[in-house]
Simulated assay, not measured.
Amino acid sequence: MQTSSVFEPTKRSAFLDVYRGAAVLLMMIFHFCWDLRNFGFMEFSIYDPFWVYFRSLILTLFLSAIGWSTYLALGRASSQSFWKRDIKLFISAAAISLATYLAVPDQWIYFGILHFIFIASLITRPIAQWPILSALFGAIIIIIYHTTNWLHFPNAFSTITSYIALPQRTLDIVFPFPWIGVVLVGPLLGYLNWHKCPIPNNPIIHILAFMGRYALPIYLTHQVILFALVAAFKMVLTLIS
Rank of each mutant, 00 (worst) to 15 (best):
S79Y: 02
R37Q: 07
G75T: 04
G67T: 14
Q80M: 15
L74H: 07
S78V: 04
S81P: 00
F39W: 10
E43S: 13
I96M: 12
F41V: 11
L98N: 01
S81T: 07
C33S: 11
A22N: 03
K88D: 02
W51V: 10
S69K: 04
W51S: 09
A22P: 10
S78M: 10
L57S: 12
T100Q: 02
S79K: 14
K84Q: 11
A77I: 02
F44Q: 09
F44R: 10
R55M: 10
A65R: 02
R76A: 10
M28R: 02
I91S: 03
I66W: 00
Y53K: 14
V52A: 07
M28C: 08
E43W: 11
N38W: 12
G75S: 09
P49G: 02
P49I: 11
L26C: 06
I96P: 01
W51Q: 12
F39G: 03
P49T: 14
H31F: 01
M42Y: 10
G40D: 08
R76W: 05
I46L: 15
I46G: 04
I96D: 00
I91G: 06
L61G: 05
W34F: 13
L61P: 00
L98I: 10
S69V: 02
K88G: 06
D35Q: 08
Q80N: 15
F82V: 09
Y71K: 03
L89C: 02
Y101A: 00
A23I: 06
S78C: 08
A94T: 14
M28Y: 01
S81G: 14
S92W: 05
L98F: 14
D48L: 09
L57R: 08
M28G: 02
